[in-house]
Design a protein around this nucleic acid. Sequence first.
DNA 1: AAGCCGGGGAT
DNA 2: ATCCCAGGCTT
Length: 343
Amino acid sequence: MPPLPWPEPQAAVVRPLVAWYRRAGRDLPWRRSRDPYPIWISEVMLQQTQVERVKDFFRRFLERFPTVADLAAADEAAVLQAWEGLGYYRRARQLHAAARQIVADCDGVFPQTISGLRALPGVGRYTAAAIASIAFDQPEPIIEANSRRVLARLAGDDRLLQGPQADEPLWQLAAELVPKRQGAGRFNQALMDFGAIICTPENPRCTACPLVAACQAHQQDRVAEIPNLPAARSIRQLQETVLVLRHRGRLLVQRRQAGEWWEGLWDFPRVLPAGVVTSGRRRLGEVTYTVTHHKVTCRIVSLTVDERPRPGRQERWVRPTELTELAMTAPGRRIAVMIASLP
DNA sequence: AAGCCGGGGAT
DNA sequence: ATCCCAGGCTT
């Protein structure tokens, strides 16, 4: 793919951007140290998740798992519990597996090369470059939601940015801009703060932009059209029924299996387990939730269980108060809260 | 290359 | 309601 035609020299972007960052950059909890461990945790939490949402999760997670050794020694259930509500739970399982990999294969020493970082589950091209530049100041470029938008606008790149191949010219541009001797991590974080604060998706603050003189999109009055991203996928409607099974003050919860949504998290059953005899069916109401590109309307049915077989490995009969200790799915948690408030 | 995976905040 | 978000992995 041909490189982006763009006349501006590196200094016309890097100097004003870093100057802006020194003045207006965000004070974020994971910027207090150059330790790769908290930087790694923050980068994984930030995958497809906004900064404001991550802050509290990050603080609590580091309090609970202060070092990579603590994380490796933890049960996966504890890691999922710390992740509950953050979404994309595969990240939590991979984070845990990666911590064990670092302890087992690297003697607990965090990988310091791009290839070593990318060998960790859950660390892809962006995350490896982010850790390498921020923790180790290696001159690695990054392309993610913010820098993609900022660089596409600066270069006036109106191509449809669909698929990883389409990003290649932007990676190349980022590689040309990133400082080679020092300050790579600072520059990359400046790009992201700049995209989050000035060069926003809607109503970018071009009048306050220190890079406006270098911005091709602005000069051509095409800022609103760039980046040219594929249209969002349509949302599918689904119907579900959740069963709240009660037996002598206890409730049945099941752990979501591989291949299901929310693998590893606890939830109420959708179908009656074999061997369970019930009576006293009544409707408790409905919850509506959205998951990825599905909108699910979920009926909640309460049943009294007269006889029950022994629970399976992935099942537990728990007292309502015990639900607070389990990592639950978002709709499961909402239903649990609803049950607790029932007369 | 396309589909899959969460959840909440902003607009 | 719709869009957006410090992406990675599987098929």
